[in-house]
Design a protein around this nucleic acid. Sequence first.
DNA 1: CAACCAAAGCTAATGACATTAGCTTCTTAG
DNA 2: CTAAGAAGCTAATGTCATTAGCTTTGGTTG
Lengths: 183, 183
Amino acid sequence: MSRRVGLSTAAVVDAAIEVIDESGLEALTLAAVASRTGVAAPSLYKHVGSLGELRTLVGLRLLSEMTERFTAVVMGRSGAEAIAILMREYRAYVIEHPARYAAMPADPLRDAALAAAGTKLLNVFLAVLRGHGIEGPDAIHTTRCARAITHGFASIEASGGFGLPEDLDETYERLIQMFIASL
Amino acid sequence: MSRRVGLSTAAVVDAAIEVIDESGLEALTLAAVASRTGVAAPSLYKHVGSLGELRTLVGLRLLSEMTERFTAVVMGRSGAEAIAILMREYRAYVIEHPARYAAMPADPLRDAALAAAGTKLLNVFLAVLRGHGIEGPDAIHTTRCARAITHGFASIEASGGFGLPEDLDETYERLIQMFIASL
DNA sequence: CAACCAAAGCTAATGACATTAGCTTCTTAG
DNA sequence: CTAAGAAGCTAATGTCATTAGCTTTGGTTG
């Protein structure tokens, strides 16, 4: 048997995300990750402090992943167009990876390990709004509104909370227009 | 020892909600409910089929609880005022019972056991919008928008996802006005 | 009133997990 | 070439959910 699988913290996080993608957030267990990486469960502790820490590391990775996508898509756009595109990309991410979205930390700013990544994600929203002429305390309220709308719609959709899947595009476009019109 | 504690399914659900209120959703375990009701864990199976079923029953109870509150508060009001009051009451519930809100089923309409209760809750929203002259397919989109906004804001707030707690009232009022203005 | 039966509890046992302790074996810096 | 640290492993513990099978109790029926 090839001892020395050559694991690393990053590889463990990779495997954890694969587990989530395939079987959902509840299936993220050290046992599942161990079997997927071909290692005994206790061996994972050489790379990851605990299941809780693994969850944090996964959250970190996903936060960065979203930030990268949003940054890329928003680049070179401005004004209402940038806002609409950002909101659409948010939903696109969630549709593409519903289980990952469920694994996203709810309060990144609370956890010191996640605060930096959470702030970066927030900054994408702030930057886009700044490009629309919104700044200062107003920008805080407006960003919160954008988060509430995007997260609210996306989380309900990801968990299958809307009855019919039809016309969800139209509903979301309405929300986007509603938000932009309110600025 | 007084054998015969006199438990019932309803009493088990009561205890489960107490556990959630005190220690959060993750703490909802049959062991915790058993110790709180003064019974051995396996005895709970006389009243509840499984942990999963207990979760469903709790969801059912909470769904009804919300529906009752919303119905009461909306009664006798109409138009934009009713919409605003309904949205404020939604948030008030979540602030009062953040842990219960986390226990709320994400997709009530999927689960047959929850569908009826979920529909009733939805109907409160639909009724309020109908009172504003919105009906048919338009009402579906509009209700979805209202759900996305209220759930989005409430769930972020309940999980401590907004940075500063200050001014959250103002942010929420903005969302309400944004929604009403869009009708 | 007595016997009976179903409901409500209980203990014991199993199986999934997380986590800890302590041992073994690569790998690689020196 | 060698010694130490890193990466694995097995064994053991504790918490849960869940199942099986036994006991007690309380009301019902003759």
